[in-house]
């Protein structure tokens, strides 16, 4: 039996379809990734899972039991790490954790014990008495995660937990996810950082514009683009006039131009690179740098949507 199942889940806001009939399942004990650019529908999906939004259509099953409209059921096993730091700035870390622990139904010595554990997990025991408003962005993010662990949830949902933080805190958070998973916690991890999802997740659903475009293990997804390499060329000005000519080069699967970067998905990238650069130079485009990477989740996304994840 799947731990969590989503069947044809849909969410509309007026005339806007935020999530357009997505279906996937999450196995107990896995780290499941939701990868997609901003606006792909990841956070809306998470909000429906947590009972913060009521789906317009579709069903959610937890351990085989339907919980679409009985969010209290899922809340019993759920820990949510929101995309934004959801803490009270004027309260100390310990006061924040104690409050959230009480909201999860903890009290007395068990609560105190769990708060200490969470502080330890976050590596911030020595700053427990400091107000959150005095913390750095990365430290806030760590306490943000700690607050979701107090009641030892079976399912941890992490919505873009590393946005805007320093490398040290990012490493700490990624290590924490792996450590929790090793302890048996099922994790749903959403991000638009391909490297994080590749590093953490056993299976990945790629989302864009409210739909799941592809789902599988990293290897399964990589096979979708065959052996195409991704070439990223940083340019000085718009390369739009040259895009059609690049697209016509043999073995080129897709070309996109955004934020001063031309991204080309092409087989045998090293061999095709001179041709591509020649087209750009002929079109008067100044090339600043070039980077070739082997097939990865970003390549899959590019192949499926014709756009880069950062677009």
């Amino acid at each position: 039996m799947d731990f969590l199942e989503l069947w044809d889940l849909r969410k509309e806001f007026g005339n806007t379809v935020a999530v357009d009939g997505i279906s996937f399942s999450v196995q107990q004990g896995e780290v499941f990734g939701l990868l997609g650019p901003n606006g792909a529908g990841k956070s809306t999906t998470i909000s429906m899972l947590c009972g913060l939004l009521t789906p317009t259509a579709g069903k959610i099953y937890l351990k085989g039991k339907e919980v679409t409209r009985t969010s209290q059921e899922i809340k019993k096993v759920l820990g949510l790490v929101p995309q934004d730091v959801a803490l009270y700035p004027s309260l100390t870390a310990r006061e924040n954790l104690t409050f959230w622990g009480k909201m999860y139904g903890l009290s007395g010595s068990l609560l105190a014990e769990r708060v200490d554990e969470a502080l330890e997990y976050c590596g911030l025991s020595d700053r427990a008495k400091d107000r959150i408003e005095t913390y750095s962005g990365g430290m806030k993010r760590r306490i943000n995660i700690g607050a979701a662990l107090l009641h030892k949830p079976e399912l941890l949902i992490m919505d873009e937990p590393t946005v805007g933080i320093d490398p040290q805190s990012r490493t700490h958070i990624l290590d924490t996810v792996l450590r929790l998973n090793a302890e048996g916690v099922t994790v749903i991890y959403t991000s638009h950082y391909m490297e994080e999802v590749e590093h953490l997740c056993s299976r990945v659903a790629i989302m864009d514009r409210g739909k799941v475009l592809a789902l599988g293990t990293k290897d399964e997804l990589a096979k979708m683009v065959g052996d195409a390499d991704k070439i990223e060329i940083v340019v000085g000005e718009s390369a739009i006039p040259a895009l059609k000519e690049i697209e016509a080069i043999p073995e080129v699967q897709s070309v996109s131009d955004g934020s001063g970067v031309v991204t080309v998905l092409v087989k045998q990238g090293h061999e095709r690179l001179p041709q591509i650069l020649e087209v750009l130079l002929r079109a008067g485009v100044k090339v600043r740098s070039v980077n070739i990477t082997e097939p990865n989740l970003e390549s899959v996304f590019l192949s499926l949507t014709g756009r880069a994840l950062r677009d």
């Binding site: 909000s47 947590c50 009972g51 913060l52 209290q72 809340k75 019993k76 759920l78 949510l80 929101p82 995309q83 934004d84 730091v85 959801a86 803490l87 009270y88 700035p89 959230w100 909201m103 999860y104 139904g105 607050a147």
Partner: peptide, 12 residues
């Protein structure tokens, strides 16, 4: 501050 959404994700 999104603490309201977080509150709704607890047993409250």
């Amino acid at each position: 501050m999104h603490t309201m959404a977080r509150l709704f994700a607890t047993k409250a």
